[in-house]
């Protein structure tokens, strides 16, 4: 009888914990919802010659993870709106420098002028991007382009990348 009571009490504690955990998890999506990326004017409208809002359609394969190796990684975007300049078609290929890093910390001595508030690149995300083209006029270094065999057109260089969800 005594054993049964203890078990029942422990189950009670666990149940309350589970309920509390579920509530916390349910509340988590609200964290950060109040953030406004527009509180400070972004450089996205001040740099680059082209500015678009586009959906990140594909990140092909995994990023290269090598010590001390800096590179640009080409990603496929579907353009939703063109704010400045022009792009060819509604699918564009954009190279991001060291994409494993948050945009706010991706700039370095070799590539000093990039930035933005995007922290990670995930297919489906919507980005507002300031672009330059062609990439070779603006960036000198390794370019991982997994579309090389199927697309030979212009590769855009992402100067500034903000979240536009």
């Amino acid at each position: 009888m005594s054993t049964m009571s203890t078990v029942s009490t422990e189950l009670g504690i666990l149940t309350r914990f589970e309920v509390l955990s579920a509530c916390l998890l349910a509340l988590l999506p609200c964290v950060g919802c109040g953030k406004t990326a527009e509180s400070v004017p972004s450089k996205v409208s001040q740099v680059g010659t082209t500015e678009v809002t586009a959906v990140l359609e594909e990140v092909r394969g995994e990023f290269v993870n090598r010590a001390n190796y800096d590179y640009a990684f080409v990603m496929k975007y579907k353009v939703k709106a063109v704010h400045r300049g022009s792009v060819e078609g509604d699918t564009i290929y954009v190279a991001h420098y060291n994409p494993q890093k948050a945009r706010s910390s991706a700039a370095d001595a070799r590539v000093p002028d990039i930035g933005g508030n995007v922290t990670r690149f995930r297919p489906g995300d919507v980005h507002r991007i300031a672009l330059e083209a062609p990439i070779d006029d603006y960036y000198m270094g390794g370019i991982i382009n997994r579309y090389f065999d199927e697309y030979k057109g212009v590769i855009y260089w992402a100067v500034w990348t903000d979240d536009a969800q």
Partner: peptide
Amino acid sequence: AETTGAATPQLLDLFRRTPTAAGLRA
């Protein structure tokens, strides 16, 4: 750390889209 750094918590990524093997690895 993420919320004070003005970033969206990474944990939310789990709820944003249907989980896939590649997505979970990333």
